[in-house]
Design a protein around this nucleic acid. Structure first.
Lengths: 205, 205
DNA sequence: AATTTTTCTGACCGAATGGTCAAGAAAAGA
DNA sequence: TCTTTTCTTGACCATTCGGTCAGAAAAATT
């Protein structure tokens, strides 16, 4: 009676406003962390009143969780695109490129994720277990197969993935530091060339 | 009159309690971020009353800033230890080891730093400019010299440093994720072997 | 147009939080 | 021992924050 009915499909206004709220929340959560973000800030950013925010979402936490759930999918997409039938070296390097591209195109998402994991992933532990882990296990097996077939140099697949994630997301997550140290210089192309060489040298059998 | 005199040298009790407070604050700030940390939590962790905390520090922010300033020194120590007269490849790989070792021995410090930079380094921007940047500029020149002398493969020094920081600190900052994906397996030795190989292959001329 | 349903908001509320203060307890100094 | 200084705390305070609610405004439905 006081709720956007969970049965009916969402109205035009509902779709528009939920989108506005989630976009504003992404901005605020990624910039201030979960505790640093306030409903008032999100409301202001969204151009809506605070009670109206709470008309569309049950509370601060639900907004955050919704954001994280949505993120997980797009965040893992590049990993899912690795083609088991492709040329191993090309596939991994293309994955590095996709991750770097995402870090550049979606820095807020990267920081939202980083913030959550930094705090111990209190609101995302189940997702890590049920969504991320199986996908990583599968990918690890694939890479092990490629290594065994002599298509890639001997690497521990999970540590390889950690290295790829760490180096690509670093440009989004530590942007404040990168900007200080690279003042003005073109970061993106330099990063791409560097990571390309690094993983090429690491993985060439 | 209400302040630990800034002129006199600190008493035995002052030294002990300031240390307790900073240690407790490191624990709390690194686990919850600046906003998520509360004086009550810090006080409880330190085993002191809240007003007593505020007898030794002017406020929450001063504790945080003190912590960051102290951190900066020990954090950059491994970089300062690079010997310009040493064997280039050995020097860089030893630096990687030191950073990985720190990530393992001082994860709270790593997360404190990560938290701060993630939020845009609001309380540390000056330090990054005045302390970190000059040191990085100097190190970059050193590495460029080594590259020009054919002692190292051609790399962009700053991106190399980013890669080293990102990959080593990842094990502390994203520990929650690493633990999920590596359940039980020995992380430390695997990481060391992996990073060793990665940077060896990258930097071998 | 009349009615029902959805969307929106001003005014509030209780809890949490950073911080203050007067005065007591403990050390240190004489 | 007596006095002074340092250290400690219970009781408060003002603000912020997540959240509620009654009812107004706007859409949709009839």
């Amino acid at each position: 009676m006081n709720d956007p009915s969970p049965i009916r499909k969402p109205s035009r206004i509902q779709k528009r406003n939920r989108k506005r709220i989630l976009d504003a929340a992404l901005e605020v959560f990624s910039a201030h962390g979960y505790r640093g973000a306030t409903l008032d800030l999100i409301a202001a950013e969204a151009g809506l009143s605070k009670p109206n925010i709470l008309y569309y979402f049950e509370g601060k936490e639900e907004i955050h969780v919704t954001l994280l759930n949505q993120l997980m999918d797009s965040w893992l997409a590049p990993l899912r695109e690795i083609d088991p039938t492709g040329e191993p070296l090309d596939e991994v390097l293309a994955y590095v490129h996709r991750k770097l591209e995402m870090s550049h195109a979606l820095p807020r998402e990267s920081r939202l994720f980083a913030n959550e994991v930094l705090q111990g992933a209190p609101r995302m532990a189940p997702h890590l277990e049920t969504v991320l882990k199986p996908l990583v296990d599968e990918t690890a097996e694939l890479i092990e197969g490629w290594v065994a077939a002599g298509k890639l140099a001997a690497v521990e697949p999970r540590h390889l993935l950690f290295s790829i994630w760490a180096t690509t997301q670093h440009y989004a997550d530590f942007d404040a530091q990168v900007r200080v140290l690279m003042d003005g210089a073109d970061v993106k192309d330099g990063a791409r060339a560097h990571l390309d060489m690094m993983f090429l040298r690491l993985l060439t059998p």
